[in-house]
Design a binder for these strands. Sequence first.
RNA 1: GCCGCUGUGGCGGAAUUGGCAGACGCAUACGACUCAAAAUCGUACGGGAAACCAUGUGGGUUCGACUCCCACCAGCGGCACCA
Length: 807
Amino acid sequence: MQKVKKYDFKAVEKKWQDIWDKDKPFAAKNDLSKPKFYALVEFPYPSGQGLHVGHPRSYTALDIVSRKRRFQGYNVLYPMGWDAFGLPTENFAIKNKMKPSEVTKNNIARFKKQLKSLGLSFDWDREINTTDPEYYRWTQWIFLQLYKHGLAYKKMTDVNWCTSCKCVLANEEVVNGTCERCSSEVIHKKKSQWMLKITQYAQRLIDDLDLVDYPERVKAQQKNWIGRSEGAQIDFETNQQDKIKVFTTRPDTIFGVTYMVISPENPIIEKWRDKISNMEAVDEYIKISAKKSELERTDLAKEKTGVKIDGVYALNPFTKNKIPIFISDYVLMSYGTGAIMAVPAHDQRDWEFANKYNIEIREVISGGDVKKEAYTDCTGAVMINSEFLDGMSVEKAKEEVILRLEREKIGNRKVNYKLRDWIFSRQRYWGEPIPIIHCDKCGYVPLDESDLPLKLPDTDFYEPSADGESPLSSMDDWVNVKCPKCGKDAKRETDTMPQWAGSSWYFLRYLDNHNDKCLADKKLIDYWMPVDWYNGGMEHTTLHLLYSRFWYKFLYDIGVVPTKEPYSKRTSHGLILGENGEKMSKSRGNVVNPDDIVNEYGADTLRLYEMFIGDFEKAAPWSQEGIKGCKRFLERFWGLQGILSDGDGIRDNMSVIINKTIKKVSEDIENLKFNTAIAAMMTLINEIYESGSVTRRELSVFTIILSPFAPHIAEEVWQSCTLGDGTLSDEVWPEFDEEKCKDKVTQIAVQINGRIKYRLDVESDISEERLWEILDSDPEFLKIIDGKQVIKKIYVPKKLVNIVVRQ
RNA sequence: GCCGCUGUGGCGGAAUUGGCAGACGCAUACGACUCAAAAUCGUACGGGAAACCAUGUGGGUUCGACUCCCACCAGCGGCACCA
């Protein structure tokens, strides 16, 4: 037994972090002949709070995968950077009277120091920063390409306006009628905004989910958000010699239409102004709904309101019956056509509205009781009161109506999506300037690509203005320019891009982060893309993940990238909660600072604990006690140096457990089951101590498979015991032998009618015949079945026997 | 309302294809070491004296169900007047 010096984790971790900094063993090589592996984690927003214990859960997981891949001979790219534009930094800067650029610089320095203290194997030479002009030059370049391809356009539109941030929000940023960032009230405002046509990619964003390996819940959530529905668009003529277009998923119910509803924002009302005899009441209603907040308008519990429009009516396209028209805010201008055909007999909302306003309820599908409630679930039911549809099933009737509509040119088959175009401008300072010039004569003129980057002007006055204009608009020197086309006086666009712009393509810049000719060299893109494994949070499913898939598809269409999808595999980590099981937050006072843990227990213990804490994909509460178990395990691993024997090779009695552990750890890492991989290594160490010693070869295998989880201690043990000829990173991942994973003796459970009576040790490779022979001469077995009639005998190899008896 | 997920000891969590429920760790108790404590090591640890009972509840399929089916209950996440 040798005496072992104390495990001084601080010295060990400092030593190896310095070596890694100097020698850069984790640098990805642009050697295109080697098999590549691109591991990606969502780059952090460098906030003022510093790193959260949630960050290392994701980073450590892919660090483990990356380190394992390097042992397996892959050229691994595992990069890190900063998603640094955005409101929190700007707000912090305002509060503390600093410049956002300064705040960003400080925060990045702090984050970087914290990340380095965790021993993550990032290739720091490829670090990127979305606020660096050399980076956002290419964000602007992509915007210009979108503009040139008609996918970026400016439009007067109804926008979500955060009253506190004094800024426009995308639909994705509005949560329950409030601002995702600050939870303040969101109101509607008409504003001219830059928009990106993500809707043009709606179908491809759904279809191509088939090409990628994402968790089902992520795919489902994206599909849900895009919200595809199939139906028909139908024209209803009015007595004003015009038409109301409606979208419906139930064209089969067209004979049941007894009224129509148009949204208060629908511009057709203006056209009818002179013909509407109760225009005052209508105007009043429009005024009231415009004042309502998003929250009030979408409150499902409230009773539906509306006003009948007198003097204008529509005609059923088939029966030519007159149909009254209402205006009501339960119809949204932003979905479909802003008008609906109402079928109270077969739609619950219409049913409620019809009852309130005494409108006829005409049943066209038999099977329900439309006096009591709307009959909506009509699968297989039969049409009635519907002329040429009578007697058909609902499914058949849908098809038939669409064919008829198309033949008579009064409608057509139509697919609608809930997804809206992406509102892309923000009235704030700390973002990428939009590289467009407004010229009275030439309209919107894009900046020449050679003039990029369009730098964000340095200023001390960047607070949002009360009138809702971007702070940039007051900077005359910057705003006033000559039109690149005609040379006359013109103005720059003063809105900036949203926080999500820089992150929509960042994974491409890592491939070639200093390139000043293009966003990245084509050869490198072709080699490294797609990302092999991308881990991130569920909260980005309908934001960053969707946006970046959209941009990437566009870049595919213009020949910049070689594949349809950016990420071949996506996984999602669960949140780390506070000790009380609630989400960690300052206000709840349950925040754990990773620095404190690194200080008290070391980075290796923190890494190990974060991986051991529970199912990687599920939320797990932090436990200050639980972390001790991981520390103890590492201490025991360190202690193995004290029982290192002179023998070499793997001892016979250790062969099975070692092969099993290699297998378990290898497979579990691939399946995100880090917790059970660690449990297997704990079992191994228990068995080693039980055996009294460890051989050099056994320790070297153990050290290699532990090293992705706890790299510092592994390097140190490797070096101080000289476990191999070279350094740990020269080693290859150990193979396991499937044959050697099998125990020589197996315990067979003996069951009677499915209940265990006793257990029997036999050789693992025993034949079924031999087993029954043993049992038939086993007094214990005979005693149990004595006097009972054996009906059936079941044998499950290496597991159990079950005897079915009648009493 | 729609979509997705979860429910196992005091706690975090294990359990290949339907085949020995509770691996591994934490906490706890007792013991060893120590003048003592901490650390460390050892033993026990779902309930029950036992037969047995136990994986949210109630049914079902099966020789056998944490696992499959049906109906509930509870909780979490997303969407939501989407026509």
